[in-house]
């Protein structure tokens, strides 16, 4: 059995799939940006129990590698690595933006943009879907200010949370993100906005089984260095 999960967004999403057919046997998604560490393990236990699958029946683990907020992202990665190591099974990573791109049903090239905080977005560009449903990543993943990459994303439907937050900056011709909509697509041709806000572990699981998502090592895509300031030496403590 393939166990898949992603903690790169505000959602903790878990799915279990048949390793041959890719059929999803169970899944769980909870949106709570501050409790990844508390939610993931119980969600895995529950998905396994509900599907009647024992942990020793797992044959592979797939995990979203971000980019995303570091603290939550690491919860998924360290869980995947330790579980796979002690179970003696394979673990693979998938760029979380690739999962989002695959969630779009649009038959067009798309851009994916997620919330990188600090008024920035994580983004990547994708080709239109191939016959098997896979999408080739053309650029990214990268992290930038929305205004700085608006020209790169111009004219493309934008998938993900970044579209909700920075719709106006990213595409003046946005048609999909109407006011009050939780949808994560703008600039879509047609009038049915897609709701693609968070990566789905179900899509991750089936994509890995069918080979329509590109797998990597389970390593974090941080894209930013840690915030550190070099010490300038001790400050004076004598009265001036």
């Amino acid at each position: 059995m393939l166990l898949a999960f992603d903690t790169s967004s505000a959602a903790v999403t878990v799915a279990l799939a048949d390793p041959v057919s890719g059929n999803v046997l169970g899944s769980s998604t909870t949106v709570d940006a501050l409790r990844h560490g508390e939610l993931l393990a119980p969600a895995i236990a529950e998905v396994l129990a509900t599907a009647g699958v024992g942990v020793k029946e797992l044959t592979k683990i797939a995990v979203g590698t971000g980019p995303g907020p570091f603290t939550g992202l690491r919860v998924g990665l360290v869980t995947a690595r330790t579980m796979a190591d002690v179970l003696g099974i394979e673990v693979v990573g998938v760029c979380s933006l690739d999962i989002l791109a695959k969630q779009s049903s649009l038959a067009l090239p798309v851009a994916v943009a997620t919330d990188a905080r600090r008024k920035e977005i994580y983004w990547a560009l994708y080709d239109g879907p191939a016959a098997d449903g896979s999408r080739r990543r053309l650029e990214g993943p990268a992290v930038d200010k929305p205004a700085e990459v608006a020209h790169v994303l111009a004219g493309l439907p934008v998938i993900g949370r970044g579209a909700v937050l920075y719709g106006e900056v990213l595409g003046a011709t946005a048609t999909g993100a109407s006011a009050g909509s939780a949808a994560g697509t703008i600039g879509a041709v047609g009038d049915e906005p897609e709701v693609v806000e968070y990566p789905s572990a179900e899509v991750l699981a089936t994509g890995v089984v069918t080979g329509t998502l590109q797998v990597t090592a389970p390593d974090p895509l941080y894209l930013r260095r840690p915030d550190v300031t070099m010490s300038g030496g001790p400050k004076s403590v004598l009265p001036k």
């Binding site: 690595r81 330790t82 179970l87």
Partner: peptide, 20 residues
Amino acid sequence: LAGALLVGVAAAKGLALSLD
């Protein structure tokens, strides 16, 4: 440190889950 603790706690849960 919150972020540091979380790595250990998540790893421990991964072990507890896998080893039952």
